[in-house]
Every structure is written in structure tokens, then in C-alpha cells.
Amino acid sequence: MASVELTINSVRRTLDAAPGETLLEVLRREGYTGVKRGCGSGDCGACTVLLDGRAVNACLVLAAKANGKEILTIEGLASGDALHPIQEAFLDEGAVQCGYCTPGMILSAYDLLSRNPTPSEGEIRQAISGNLCRCTGYVKQVRAIQAAAERMRSARHE
């Protein structure tokens, strides 16, 4: 089996990956179970990961295309016991229900806030428009992302 070299959550790894395998298959096989499969066709966003800093559907990216690149999965977001402010905000605002879409939604938010620290509500909705959630009405996720943006801004100013 061919292999790919990926930097996953800041750790450099060489992983087996057949040429036709998607990033989703490879990551899940390696135990990154926060990358969820919801459709396998890029329609739901449950498998969202960051590829060189951009949120993508892991089910639509061939692992080979990610060779040499950096990947951030939900497992890499918290540092030890300290949750990332987006994770904290998702808990505080009641944005998590079943939690299956949550990792993807959080990573899309992370991508947004990394390039736009003061997003409008419309920009937030646009940023998570590829992440479907069937439990919530998106109200609390939008609020959580707003709250996280605020927390991250004030953390930067301290």
C-alpha cells in the first residue's frame, strides 16, 4: 500500500493510504474518530477537517492530495484539558445536541475566525453553510460562534 506523509494536529505522520482512498477513510482508520461520516458525498460537512488551514470535506479529498500538508482535526483543537474557546462556547450556548455534526461545525467556525475575527451573523451562517445539523435550529451555533469570537478577541487584547 502506498503511503502519505501528513502533519496531523502538529504531529508528523506517515500513514498507509491506497491511491483511491479519501482522507476520511484514512483518518478514521488511524483513530481520528472526531471526523464523522454522514454522507460520503460532501453534502453534510460532518467530516470537516482543516487542510493547510482551510476547512474541507475529508470525504471529497483523496488522501494522496493531502500529501505533505497540514491537517487539523477536532482532536487537535483543545490543548490538554483546556478546551478551545469555540468548544467552550458551544457548550455554554447549548449548541451541542447529538454532537455528530459538532466537530465539523466547530472546525468550520475555526477556519472562519482564523481569517475573520469579527464576523457578521451572515458571514457566520455562510461559513457553516456546508455543515448540516438536524437537531438544532442553528440559532445556538451562531450564538456560540459569536461568543467565541468575542472571547478570542478579548484574549488577544489581554
Binding site: T33, G34, I74, E75, F90, L91, T102
Partner: peptide, 13 residues
């Protein structure tokens, strides 16, 4: 909630 926002292996698959 904490396990869910961290993507811990909580689901069947």
C-alpha cells in the same frame, strides 16, 4: 458535552 466537542469516540462507528 465535553467529550462531544472534543470528538471523542462516543458513537457506534
Amino acid at each position: 458535552g465535553v467529550g462531544l466537542v472534543k470528538g471523542k469516540p462516543k458513537f457506534v462507528a
